[in-house]
Design a binder for these strands. Structure first.
Lengths: 274, 274
DNA sequence: ACAAAAGTGTTAATCTTACACCCATGG
DNA sequence: CCATGGGTGTAAGATTAACACTTTTGT
């Protein structure tokens, strides 16, 4: 009945897991992915997806792997929230969990049911069931981080496909902040951001005026060099980007850089040279 | 020559350490504590203080323990920055480091030289030596967090003794932000914060006008109940606190709560009932 | 009396908020 | 022609930024 335990250390070591708060926008609501535990402890309870970090695996890579196993999505936005390590958080053994939050675009919702899970499904963040372990705490920190960031970065774009309407973008903000926003003020604010560009294309659908489609501008165009470059142009576009940048959108720029870097790492794995 | 390794697991487990970016204000500059490594790897290099988390020890408690071992200070402000776990960050074995930043008041600077350290000393953050491991990365994240928080929380008070002058508080902000601030605007801004109270006492020293001493108000007075309570009073103090609170100082309040909680845990250990 | 830091207000510019109507399309 | 969501501007209020002189003390 005794298992083989071939990995030995001079001092006791905890296990390290990566847990994920995976957000998406679905039916105009912020939703997150939970799995129902198939085994004890907390059998039947809902929990954040996650799993153990492999011994030579980077934390971020472990989270990305779990994310892909669970959703089939590679290259989603992924950001560390922090480590959770209360001694008794897992009754089996000491487990330190490094939590991440992930955002997957609302047009990318597939699910796979993994090994530990009896079921996986999306839950609106305001109607969550009781969670296993200390996952409610992890989740609250992730939500808080998301709320903070949505105002100061381009992270909202991560919830949307590459082209989107401003109304869709507004719905992302409203879902995350949990409050309605004024359409005109919201658009005025967007106008001051350096990372949105109208495509000129339209989305038509429903019996109403078509909406213009926008895209996020990759960071390259708005990093610090834009301050110098943009200012020389008479074209209002470059100038306003530079100006907006100077007025404190470094945060947004930095965030996009980080985001792109992390995504890039994943994407590069599956892209042939052009 | 083979060591005994009595702790065995079915799967390999990483070691988990807590590393600390310990900040203080010294000679009007933001400084941090580094230790010089006595052993390989990186023998002779400077590094963040830290050590392994014990198997039944909370992460926060491990950081607090290291902090006290290194500085003799208990109950300092301590906040997690995140987990750092690149596979080769420590050449000896897989080590995942949970980083914290700590703030110790500028009147509390004692040092003890611990086991691993050949020496420990304070370094101005703008004149740091080359660091061991990935500590420069940890430190940059900690500094960034500190800069972000100083504007949106009462964290600056942590650098000061319980009573301080507004000029001292301004110096804390200037040291952290790395830029000079306008005295009048700074004070106007302080006036809008809910957590400062003039004591009426003065500090005299030097051949100039004495400065009034201030204190931080414990969170109890400014948490959400203040919104209700304060508004009923005609006394301008309560009302303005409530008002300021409503206008978005929840952040400050929450931060102080967190800070107080973490400190309290430490302090309660050494306080007799009144 | 002078050197040194403490303390104090006003104005212009910018940013934020509140608010209501016309437009283009599909049915 | 009507229902639906898309798109647009202005004025008042709040916040931020720039800026210089008087006060109080110790020597």
């Amino acid at each position: 009945m005794t298992e083989k335990k071939p990995f030995s250390y001079k001092y006791p070591h905890p296990a390290v897991a990566a847990d994920l708060a995976i957000f998406t926008l679905h039916e105009s609501r912020l939703q997150m992915l939970l799995i129902q535990r198939a085994r004890d402890p907390f059998k039947g309870r809902w929990a954040l997806p996650g799993g153990f970090v492999r011994i030579h695996e980077d934390l971020h890579a472990a989270a990305a792997r779990e994310l892909e196993e669970e959703t089939g999505v590679a290259g989603a936005y992924l950001e560390q929230v922090g480590a959770f390590g209360a001694p008794q958080r897992d009754p089996r053994e000491r487990v330190i969990s490094v939590a991440f939050f992930a955002i997957i675009p609302s047009d990318t919702i597939h699910l796979r049911s993994g090994g530990d899970a009896a079921a996986a499904s999306w839950w609106p963040v305001n109607e969550l069931p009781k969670l296993a372990f200390d996952h409610i705490e992890i989740l609250e920190q992730a939500r808080h981080r998301l709320r903070d960031k949505v105002r100061r970065s381009s992270i909202a774009l991560r919830f949307l496909p590459p082209e989107f309407t401003l109304t869709e973008l507004q719905q992302v903000h409203e879902a995350i902040l949990g409050q309605d926003l004024d359409k005109r003020n919201f658009r005025k604010w967007l106008g001051s951001l350096p990372y949105l560009r109208a495509t000129g294309r339209m989305r038509r659908g429903g019996q109403h005026r078509p909406a213009e489609l926008y895209r996020g501008i990759p960071t390259a165009y708005i990093d610090s060099s834009a301050t110098v470059t943009g200012a020389e142009y008479s074209g209002s576009d470059g100038a306003s980007i530079a100006q907006a940048y100077q007025r404190g959108y470094q945060d947004a720029a930095r965030e996009m850089t980080t985001a792109f870097e992390s995504t890039q790492r994943e994407l590069l794995k599956r892209v042939r040279p052009a």
